[in-house]
């Protein structure tokens, strides 16, 4: 599937889906160092900072210049935003490969 590449870099790892409406303890976010974090819903700059230890970021919404994507770029975290309905193909724990340059996301089933 393809979204908008917002920060270059290729990464492979398990996906962890964050629901915007559910509060997640800071400790849990910090412990996701080897994960690709996928934001479902509001993709706020604050959330990106909280998740800075992750290997890559995916998001259902957002665009190249959204504030959160600009923070991902500053933190040099590969990032693909604007996946839209394709986001529904992501499953917690499944492996994925993302390319932040082309916006391509491959999900291993």
């Amino acid at each position: 599937m393809k979204g908008i590449g917002a920060c270059p870099g290729k990464r492979n790892g398990p996906v962890y889906i964050f629901e915007a409406s559910v509060a997640v303890p800071d400790k849990k976010i910090g412990a996701l160092a080897d994960y690709i974090i996928a934001f479902n819903g509001a993709f706020t700059p604050r959330r990106v900072i909280d998740a800075r230890s992750c290997i890559a970021i995916l998001a259902r919404g957002g665009g190249f210049t959204c504030h959160a994507a600009s923070i991902a770029r500053e933190l040099n975290i590969p990032c693909v935003v604007g996946l839209g309905r394709m986001f529904d193909n992501l499953v917690d724990g499944n492996m994925a490969t993302i390319d932040g340059s082309t916006g391509l996301v491959e999900v291993e089933k």
Partner: peptide, 19 residues
């Protein structure tokens, strides 16, 4: 290519405020 374009724009769309 689109990949090179993203790399270019990621380098120029930076802000001192964000940093």
């Amino acid at each position: 290519s689109p990949g090179q374009r993203t790399e270019l724009l990621a380098q120029v769309c930076r802000s001192v405020y964000v940093r």
